[in-house]
Structures are given as C-alpha cells and as structure tokens.
C-alpha cells in the first residue's frame, strides 16, 4: 500500500511543477464560467416559466463545475501512450508491482494535481461572480464527501481509458469516447436537472453523473445532506465495478500484447 502511495506522491510532486499550465487553466476556467453564465442568463430571460433550478443556482452550479473541472478534463495518460508506442510497456509487466494499482495511483495524482492548484482561485473568483454559499454546513460537508467519492470514480474511469490505449488501433477511439461521454453526462453540458425528464433516469444510472452533478446538488441542497449516503454508495458501486472490469481488461491486454522493436 505504501508503495502505491509513494507512486501517487511522486507523480503529484512532479505535476505540481506545472505552474504555467495551472495558471492557464485558471484563466480558461474563468473564461468558460463567464461564457456559460451569459448563455444561461440569456436562456432564462427568454422564458418566464418555472424551472427545476433557479438562475442563481445555475450560476453556483457552473462555478462549482469550473472549479473542479480538472476531475473530468484532460486526456488519457500520456506516458502510457508513449509506452505503448515505443514498446517499453513491457517493462511495466516486469516490475514486482501490480500494474493496475500502479496506473491507478498515477491517475489519482494526475486528476488531483491540477484540481488542487485551481480549485481555490476559481472558487474565489466565482464567488465574485455569483457563486453562492451552501445552505447549511452539513450540505458543504456532503459536497466535500461527494467530491472525494467523485475522485475515485473518475480515476477508475480514466484508468480504464488508459488501459484501452493498449489496443493501439481501436483503443484510441475508446480513450476519447470515455471523457467525452463523461463530459456530456456529468452536468457540464447542461445541468442534469435541466435535462428533459425522460433522460434523467438514464443519466442517473451512469457513473458520470456522480462525478459532478451529484456533489453539486448536495452543495445546493437539492439533495439533502442525508442523501449523501446513497450518492457515496452509487460511487462506490461504480468504482468497484470499473476497477474489476479494468483489471480484467488489463489482463487480457497483456496477454495479447505485441512488443515492437528490432
């Protein structure tokens, strides 16, 4: 266990160096937050009908999303891609450590590093533009717990994306599909409550929803703090399922791996 923590720690330290990327990230998050705010404002102004979420709530939702976007944004592990291309992925098999958990640890660090650098500045700036506080302290705690669970789910998903890269030709497609689906179904495209009613049950069955939308609704109080338990259970179930599937897939991948080189 300590070995995997060490791996995660090393990767985290390495990624914390990326100041320019973090700064650029903060700028673009603010940019996008503002764009989204304006778009939704225009929509809300166009209709007097009552909506599942009020505009101020949407604003809070948007800024929460921008602050924690690092959880879902990005691409599959670059190092894995390079490893597959040059054939050095064979070295991974030779090390006396479980490959899946090694990659999982690296992915956690990769998800956490940019978020750690960006979340506070973006939240602060969001507050200037309308990010509201949670109704109760319990809601805030529920949000934090939900976000922690979200980290696990999203890491499992991203690890899966990395594993699919081992299938050099078709894997690229899957590795792209996972984050795009995640983006669409996690609430960044449209807040889930604003999606048409028939879509809601489908979306809430998938894991992507618990990465962003569920914690945000906990924050807003739409889902009361007591509801956090079910959310966490949902996240845990999906995490376990994705981990098991990922491990199985990895085993198959290494079985059929062709190492290139002269």
């Amino acid at each position: 266990m300590t070995a995997y923590l060490a791996i995660a720690g090393a990767r985290l330290r390495a990624l914390l160096q990326y100041r320019a990327a973090a700064a650029a990230g903060i700028v673009t998050h603010i940019f996008w937050g503002l764009i989204r705010m304006m778009i939704f404002e225009a929509f809300y102004r166009s209709s007097a009908a009552a909506q599942p979420m009020s505009y101020p709530e949407v604003v809070t939702y948007i800024w929460l999303g921008q602050a924690t976007l690092a959880l879902t944004l990005g691409s599959a592990d670059m190092d894995v891609r390079a490893m597959v291309r040059t054939g050095t992925v064979a070295y991974e098999m030779v090390r006396p450590m479980d490959v899946y958990w090694t990659w999982f640890s690296r992915t956690i660090a990769a998800r956490l590093a940019p978020m750690a650098l960006q979340v506070v500045p973006v939240l602060l700036i969001g507050a200037m533009f309308g990010l509201g506080p949670p109704p109760t302290v319990a809601s805030a705690a529920a949000w934090a717990a939900g976000t922690a669970g979200a980290l696990l789910v999203t890491t499992a998903l991203w690890t899966l994306a990395s594993i699919s890269l081992l299938w050099t030709i078709s894997g690229e497609g899957v590795a792209r599909l996972i984050p795009t689906l995640g983006y669409c179904f996690c609430g960044m495209l449209i807040p889930i409550p604003l999606m048409p009613p028939w879509a809601q049950p489908i979306v809430t069955a998938l894991p992507f929803w618990t990465v962003m939308d569920a914690p945000f609704r906990l924050y807003l109080g739409h889902i009361p703090p007591e509801g956090a338990g079910i959310i966490l259970l949902h996240q845990l179930a999906w995490t376990v399922g994705l981990v098991l599937f990922g491990r199985w897939l990895l085993g198959r991948a290494f079985g059929r791996l062709v190492v290139q080189g002269g």
Binding site: F43, S46, S47, A49, Q51, L189, L194, P196
Partner: peptide, 13 residues
C-alpha cells in the same frame, strides 16, 4: 444539449 435547452426555454433572446 442545445436543442434540449431551446426546448425547455422556448427560445434564446
């Protein structure tokens, strides 16, 4: 997503 929003809000400004 865009269509869904138009559908819900009936138009955009």
């Amino acid at each position: 997503g865009v269509v869904a929003l138009f559908d819900r809000f009936g138009g955009l400004r």
